[in-house]
């Protein structure tokens, strides 16, 4: 019965959405704000990647809100799972390939993660993507060695430091007589590695925070699994 009503509901809603979507043009968006941002952002913010200049320049406080959501989700997951005692030996160790492959790939993942964070204002990528790769780098040893643990105290220090520096950079703009989180010091050439003022610093903070939070989330879940 539930399947039939669900199918009817999904089908009807799908038909309604089809009717709406067939009236939408593809390839010529009705939004004009995108063009305005494209023409203004190179002079105002100075980042070659327009997405970065919107994430950290025009919508910096929104990004701070997203980081708050991420923090709330990570701490809620930690709260729900509680303190777990890892029992070694209940889970089989990873095989030879996983064990040594994990150790071999760790420095490369670290390098590419930081590369993506540092070039966030020039290339596709940035703090969020690089942070996820950093989290994967630190999670991989946990898969190879089920008994291993991440140091949660170090992770929370990194996370707190990154979050605090994001807000401090925003407050520094206030001290200069500008708006909160407004980009500063952008008198450099467009497209150079050191350009776009405070944006790369903000992205480094975002990357470290995302990496630390996802790593602690994943290790929480992994330790739960190893208990049962």
């Amino acid at each position: 019965m539930r399947k039939l009503t669900g199918l009817l509901f999904a089908g009807g809603l799908g038909f309604m959405l089809l009717a709406i979507a067939s009236g939408l043009d593809f390839g010529s968006p009705p939004m004009r704000i995108g063009e305005a941002i494209q023409s203004a952002s190179p002079q105002e913010v100075g980042a070659a990647n327009i997405v970065t200049s919107v994430v950290l320049g025009y919508r910096g406080i929104d990004t701070l809100g997203e980081l708050a959501i991420l923090f709330a989700a990570a701490s809620a997951a930690g709260l729900v799972l509680g303190r777990r005692h890892t029992t070694t030996g209940t889970q089989r160790k990873g095989g030879f390939v996983l064990f040594h492959g994990g150790a071999l790939i760790f420095p490369f993942l670290l390098t590419i993660g930081f590369y993506i964070i540092f070039h966030g204002h020039l290339t596709p990528g940035g703090g969020f993507q690089g942070g996820v790769i950093l989290a994967a780098a630190f999670f991989l040893p946990l898969l190879a060695r089920p008994g291993a643990r991440l140091h949660h105290s170090i992770l929370s220090v990194i996370e707190a430091f990154a979050g605090a520096s994001f807000i401090l950079i925003g407050l520094a703009a206030l001290g200069e007589g500008q708006a909160f989180l407004q980009p500063m010091l952008n008198q450099d050439t467009l497209g150079a590695l050191i350009s776009a003022g405070t944006l790369p610093l903000l992205y480094i903070a975002v990357g470290l925070k995302v990496g630390a939070e996802l790593a602690s989330l994943l290790s929480n879940l992994a330790q739960t699994e190893s208990e049962q």
Partner: peptide, 25 residues
């Protein structure tokens, strides 16, 4: 391309991962 949807989805993906982890917990 219009950069605004990219920005919204960039943050939504990371938040989606975090909320999925919370749901699994």
């Amino acid at each position: 391309s219009n950069p605004l949807p990219h920005v919204l989805i960039l943050t939504a993906i990371v938040v989606g991962v975090a909320t999925t982890a919370l749901a699994l917990a």
